[in-house]
Amino acid sequence: MKDSVALRTRTPDTDVRKKGGAFLTEIRKHGLLYLLTLPGILLVFVFSYLPMGGIVIAFQNFNAIKGITGSEFVGFKNFEFFIQSNEVLHVIFNTLFLNALFILFGTCASVAIAVMFSELGGKWFKRIVQSLVTLPNFLSWTVIAMFVTALLSSDTGMLNKWLISLGFEPISFFNEPAIWPIILVLIKIWQGAGFGAIVYLATITGINPDIYESASIDGASRWKKIRYITLPLLKPTVILMMLLAMGGIFYGDFGMIYAIVGRNVLLYPTTDVIDTYVFRALMELNDMGMAAAVGVFQSLVGFILVITVNQLARKFSPDSALF
């Protein structure tokens, strides 16, 4: 009885104060939760949003003495060299292609490793091997490049020496652009798969063991359990990781490619990405405005891509959508 009276007397007021009311109601309901988010929001504001004004450099003829506020505005001129260049479509393709391969195969490898580990029992074997497979992640690309050269060099490489000893012709790896996407993917997997598996491993440990128990009782084999329980439950995490990676899909892995391929022009057709190309184009000019322009381009297209895929994710797996 009391409630209906309260409801009746409240109605006209609620209509008038609808907008402000919804906000306040929300705050009243989850106030403490919003309070929790406050420090994070603040930090992001100070360190990420405040400096964002610097994006304007991409549209300026930037002069360090005149600063951001004093440099001349030149509209889209800084983008010219990139858009009109000979190679723009080619390097964009390489960037996307290589990154897509990295994301795809990298995820498969990491998930496979995580699943494999979760199936094991031996505590010591598990701990040791788990740590060992993450080791390559700690090596810098310069060091890795040294190994790659030692392995694949035409004159002195280990692989070629072995081929010769078996009676085959040596392969000039560093002169053949076609095989390099594969080589780069293999290197990337070796370097990152073990470490990347950690996330998936953590997710798997969160799965309720009861589900596995009941599946065993029903007579499911190990493989069936993996296929019908583990993998589907990993889906949200996989989708999230891929979404996160997708934003950067227009950013080539400069560190890796520059260290390994360096200035070997013969390999450029399949390994030159946006970042390495721009690095060479601006090497002598040293122009900050032009470099910033390419960055804006890369961010923008990546952003559009993510928004699109995110909408899809929302439909199929709303929990893993980014926003």
């Binding site: 001129k77 010219e80 060299f81 990139f82 009109q84 260049s85 000979n86 190679e87 200035r263 022009v265 013969l266 450029y268 190309y277 060479r280 184009a281 601006l282 090497m283 002598e284 000019l285 122009d287 032009m290």
Partner: peptide, 22 residues
């Protein structure tokens, strides 16, 4: 002084550099 032809240099340099190395 490269500033009047900045964009052109940025476009030309990577291509010519590649050829020159070969």
């Amino acid at each position: 002084d490269p500033s009047p032809v900045k964009s052109e240099i940025a476009k030309v340099q990577p291509v010519s550099d590649q050829m020159a190395q070969v």
